[in-house]
């Protein structure tokens, strides 16, 4: 299964929770904390359920809420995707 990229995540965040104002989401945001970017836990939950729907996977709630940065989230989601492929 295709891996989730930072561009996928940008698009999903925008669809799920709208665009942020003070930060350029298209810039280097990989290691910025979601809160600093402007997305709170609900925004991430909403993004998480969109990822689940798009890829037909299930993500633990903890996986979403414990991811502090886009890199954390991509790493965790891609692990789940890899497991789903292996299964």
């Amino acid at each position: 299964m295709a891996q989730l990229t930072i561009d996928d995540l940008r698009r999903i965040l925008r669809e799920a929770a709208g665009d942020v104002q003070d930060i350029d989401l298209d810039g280097d945001v990989m290691d910025l904390e979601f809160e600093a970017i402007g997305y709170d836990s609900l925004a991430l939950l909403e993004a998480g359920s969109r990822i689940e729907r798009a890829h037909g996977i299930t993500l633990d709630d903890g996986l979403i809420t414990e991811a502090a940065t886009p890199r954390d989230l991509l790493t965790a989601v891609n692990e789940v995707l890899a497991e789903a492929d292996a299964a």
Partner: peptide, 8 residues
Amino acid sequence: LASRLLPQ
């Protein structure tokens, strides 16, 4: 309103 407010 900012885009961030619309989905919610």
